[in-house]
Design a protein around this nucleic acid. Structure first.
Lengths: 204, 204
DNA sequence: TAAGATTTTAAATGTTTGTTTAAAATTTGT
DNA sequence: ACAAATTTTAAACAAACATTTAAAATCTTA
């Protein structure tokens, strides 16, 4: 009977997740991971076969963390304006909790798009579904600007995610501490909510 | 008399720039650079002392490419609305020419912020200057929403740069070819211009 | 064209990389 | 408590890494 000690495997995976998030796949060594976990160098391969297999497993988790909550909101039976505000608020919460996540996702998809593609396709379908119909309905009613979902999503989440993608740059550029950055992003989130709803539901 | 063959040095630097842009510092090997330049592996160290020194030199050029044109527009003696539209248009041109530039800049500043900081401080001052006064004046006149430059810049450039940062993700997510991505970004740019000017100059 | 300076090359440097091995330690099942 | 299975360890592995060396090739200049 296979009875893996989940504690060690999980500890290793959590350590690897933390290191990968900070340094990316190319910038992370097997020894970085072992050190972060306080475990022997051989255990990564014992539990996960290879650095890359461990990475792919972690990437899936993190891409899910990046998408799942947003997709859940997309499926909610609420009005579009309310929905968009909720998405921005949820996106903000997610990035506040894991500020390096978006840059990590973008960097790794850029590095190895084909290999990480399967993970992407799963969310491709979810993004559409009832959300597209809802947009079409609002546009038909004239209560919303005519816009495709491909443009809507980056308009909703782009500006705020960009602030986190460039966290270090913005902190240095505007001489901010961590605490000041928190205030900064919250204010920015409110600007984005105002700007986006203003643009999309101007006539309302 | 020191008389370096600029042709070889420049060829090597251009090749390195191309590889670094695509694979980043951590993902690029000395052999990648030599191969891309079609030159001997030892020449990187002959001309630039080390991989890192070559990288820093290239990063400076690319960060300048990222900032300079925008800063130039900031200093123009034109109205704020016109200025903001010009910045978006120029940003779009820059990213169309070098689509991986923004992700590269963000990734490398994240990786080694302290070492690349000096490059940043140079533009820190330029960003302020007369631009801040111009914003204050427009806000005072009531022709513009009250907003700080720290929030204004990401609001202007964030959404569009985000689309390029996530180029591969967006292409896969929405099943776009390179040509379709070009059309997509141009349309998105126009959305951003509309949304941003609408938000900032609503009363006008 | 010959001497000197510069550029390019192939080879080797010592590290660091991801991964494997085989033995030791620990846990599990009886 | 003992045998078997599992986990952990230290050591070693070849391959890849950035960099150096010293000789060969090329270019400069007088």
């Amino acid at each position: 009977m296979k009875c893996i000690n989940l504690s060690s495997e999980e500890k290793l995976k959590e350590a690897a997740k933390s290191v990968f998030l900070r340094k990316g796949f190319a910038g992370t060594t097997a020894r970085d991971i072992a050190d972060a976990a306080g475990m022997n160098i051989a255990l990564t391969n014992y539990y996960f076969r290879s650095k890359e297999k461990l990475f792919v497993e972690i990437f899936k988790d993190l891409f899910s963390l990046y998408c799942t909550n947003t997709v859940k909101i997309l499926e909610k039976p609420i009005g579009l304006k309310e929905k968009i505000i909720e998405i921005i608020e949820e996106d903000y919460r997610m990035m506040k909790e894991e500020p390096t996540l978006v840059l990590f996702i973008m960097t790794e998809i850029h590095r190895d798009c084909e290999n990480l593609l399967p993970e992407l396709s799963k969310y491709k379908e979810l993004l559409k579904g009832m959300f597209i119909d809802q947009i079409a309905e609002e546009v038909r009613k004239g209560s919303m600007r005519d816009i495709e979902v491909e443009h809507l999503m980056p308009i909703i989440i782009g500006s705020l995610q960009f602030v986190f993608v460039g966290k270090n740059m913005h902190m240095k550029m505007y001489s901010m501490s961590e605490g000041q950055f928190d205030n900064y992003t919250e204010t920015h989130k409110n600007h984005v909510i105002g700007m986006v709803t203003n643009y999309l539901f101007q006539s309302a």
